[in-house]
Write a protein that binds this DNA or RNA. Structure first.
Length: 449
RNA sequence: GGCCCGAUGGCGGAGUGGUGACGUACCGGACUGCAAAUCCGUGAACCCGGGUUCGAUUCCCGGUCGGGCCUCCA
């Protein structure tokens, strides 16, 4: 039994897949016009955990998870023009970086990675269908969705149509029947990226891409649709409307899930204009590991806002180090199954803090701990830059290992001679350079703090 | 201006109509030559004001503060 909070109903509900042999989930992925920041990866990590939970529950091959790449967009075109290159130079560069960062965070590759530019025909078909059904109209090279044609418009985000128009902050264009109508297709100038269509050469609007790709690759109605909370309106509202209208009222998704935002200290939104955004790459260069970042993203419930700062990461480091000490050497290969307490916590609307609390209760059993951490995608043992078990014990590839080992041996000799002053001096010297010594029954080991 | 979400110990963070998880920090104990690591244990919180109730941190109303959306946005 998996219960998930549905934004459409503002309540938790039981997940009841349309077809338990083919559970479908779609998550809005990045628009690849620049390097994603850590906040952009919250949905990637959160829905990666959900994807693992679904596979555990329904079977590894019973889940189809799609996360799109938006590779045509005005911001991409702007960037390409600024650099004097074609858009695919831009999109390939940032898609590669996105996937690398996702891997660093332990995010498994989704089953499907639909790209907007390879789904243009599906979009054109859907737009034509919407026009034929009287839900869209062409005007001055544009095709617009007629929001007044859909009685449920605004139901997902709970925004009555008349209120939105009263707000009057929507773009008013002369070719729009209604200010809230949104673009399905827009014309491209000769020097802009474009594709042929019945309405002339142009490019798709943002919202139609997800609707078309979902219909094309997953079906008319999917089980779960996810994304950041900011996408609720207008993006998901519009997707919802388009798909329902194109499919004679069939809902696009049965459950809508939205993750909360990351904040920086002081409650400030992470924003490029404030200069406080950090990419995964920058955080790695700052010395944090992918596991620490992933655990940080999972430390709060996904719908809650999460303050992202060094204090949080420091706490995550401490927690991971403790687990790694308990795990010791972990061979690669098959992982133990996750403990029921962890699965149950996640089955209740992906309650990762409760899952972490459950781990605290079972961490004495190495196998159980390993199963729990593996299920959460932690730790990525052996992954590059990971603080793995070997590093923790002073083995690994530490360039100073030989020198440090020699000092440790000196100290051991001093201790044997009960020369406490000398042994403490050596330990203090190592402490000063960030080396922590641990005297155990099997001898002395060391690690970097 | 409209709509939505949140406010829990020093910090992070679940949850609940009736003894308030968990992590971390602090303190005490065991262990240690002393530490570290490990183990055991104590103490410590539900924004404010009303209301409903036998009883509210939990439900309702109002307020304050914070965040989000209404235009591209994870």
């Amino acid at each position: 039994m998996i219960r998930l909070y549905n934004t459409a109903t503002r309540a938790k509900q039981l997940l009841a897949p349309i077809n338990p042999d083919r559970v479908t989930m779609y998550v809005c992925g990045p628009t690849v016009y620049g390097r994603a920041h850590i906040g952009n990866f919250r949905p990637a990590v959160v829905f990666d955990v959900l994807q693992r939970l679904l596979r555990h529950h329904y079977g590894p091959d019973k889940v189809i998870y799609a996360r799109n790449i938006t590779d045509i967009d005005d911001k991409i075109m702007d960037k390409a023009r600024a650099e004097g290159v074609s858009i695919d130079v831009i999109t390939e560069r940032y898609e590669t970086l996105y996937l690398e960062d996702a891997t660093t965070l332990g995010v498994e590759r989704p089953d499907l990675h639909p790209h907007a530019t390879t789904s243009i025909p599906a979009m054109v078909d859907m737009i034509a269908l919407l026009i034929a059904k009287g839900h869209a109209y062409a005007a001055q090279g544009h095709v617009l969705f007629d929001v007044s044609s859909h009685g449920d418009y605004g139901s997902l985000s709970r925004r009555p149509l008349d209120e939105m128009i009263a707000g009057a902050r929507v773009e008013v264009a002369p070719y729009k029947k209604n200010p809230a109508d949104f673009v399905l297709w827009k014309p491209s100038a000769k020097d802009q990226a474009g594709w042929p269509s019945p309405w002339g050469r142009g490019r798709p609007g943002w919202h139609i891409e997800c609707s078309a790709m979902i219909a094309e690759s997953l079906g008319q109605t999917i089980d779960i649709h996810g994304g950041g909370i900011d996408l609720t309106f207008p993006h998901h509202e519009n997707e919802c409307a388009q798909s329902a209208c194109a499919h004679d009222g069939a809902p696009l998704a049965n459950i809508w899930m939205h993750n909360g935002f990351l904040n920086f200290g002081g409650g400030e939104k992470m924003s490029k204009s404030l200069g406080n955004v950090l990419s995964v790459g920058e955080l790695i260069e700052a010395g944090w590991t992918g596991d620490e970042l992933r655990l940080g993203l999972l430390s709060a419930h996904y719908r809650q806002p999460l303050t992202w700062d060094e204090a949080l990461l420091g706490q995550m480091r401490g927690r991971l180090d403790k687990w790694l000490r308990k795990l010791g050497d972990v061979p690669k290969g098959v992982r133990p199954p996750p403990p029921p307490a962890v699965v149950e916590a996640l089955a209740d609307d992906l309650n990762t803090p409760a899952a972490l609390a459950a781990i605290a209760g079972i961490e004495q059993d190495r196998e159980v701990l390993l199963g729990a951490l593996a299920f959460l995608g932690l730790p990525s043992l052996g992954a590059e830059r990971s603080r793995n078990a070997a590093d923790m014990r002073g083995g690994g590839e530490d360039p100073d290992a030989a020198r440090i080992n020699a000092l440790v041996a000196d100290r051991l000799a001093a201790r044997k001679a009960k020369n406490w002053a000398e042994s403490d001096r050596l330990r203090d010297a190592l402490t000063a350079e960030g080396i922590v010594l641990e005297d155990g029954p099997g001898g002395t080991s060391w690690r970097r703090a």
